[in-house]
């Protein structure tokens, strides 16, 4: 039964990641791409957690700690960079 669950989760996450990638490629503004990149990062974290769950192997969990802690830097940096300030 776990095999079916693994296949279902993989298919769902792959479809979600593909749609986020389409938005990154098409997104009319940079901010669209930042939001889509955040979603893609969340999907990647979810996928790594799913892999750890299905194989009962906690090796990848420290990677998730780092990614969830540092995922903020990209979007904050770009958002600060492109905001027009009143001079």
């Amino acid at each position: 039964m776990m095999t079916y669950a693994a296949v279902a989760v993989t298919v769902l996450l792959t479809a979600a990641g593909a749609m986020a990638l389409v938005r990154i490629v098409r997104g009319p503004t940079t901010l669209d791409r930042i939001v889509a990149t955040d979603v893609l990062l969340a999907i990647i974290i979810t996928g790594i957690a799913a892999e750890a769950a299905f194989s009962r192997d906690p090796t990848a969990l420290p990677v998730l700690v780092v990614v969830s802690l540092l995922g903020i830097t990209g979007s904050v940096g770009v958002a600060r960079f492109i905001t027009r300030e009143k001079s």
């Binding site: 669950a5 979600a16 749609m19 979603v39």
Partner: peptide
């Protein structure tokens, strides 16, 4: 399995919404 499939469905919902 139910928890993980629900989580994956939420990811899919975000992809569709994007």
């Amino acid at each position: 399995a139910v928890c993980m499939i629900t989580g994956a469905l939420l990811s899919l919902a975000a992809g569709v919404a994007l």
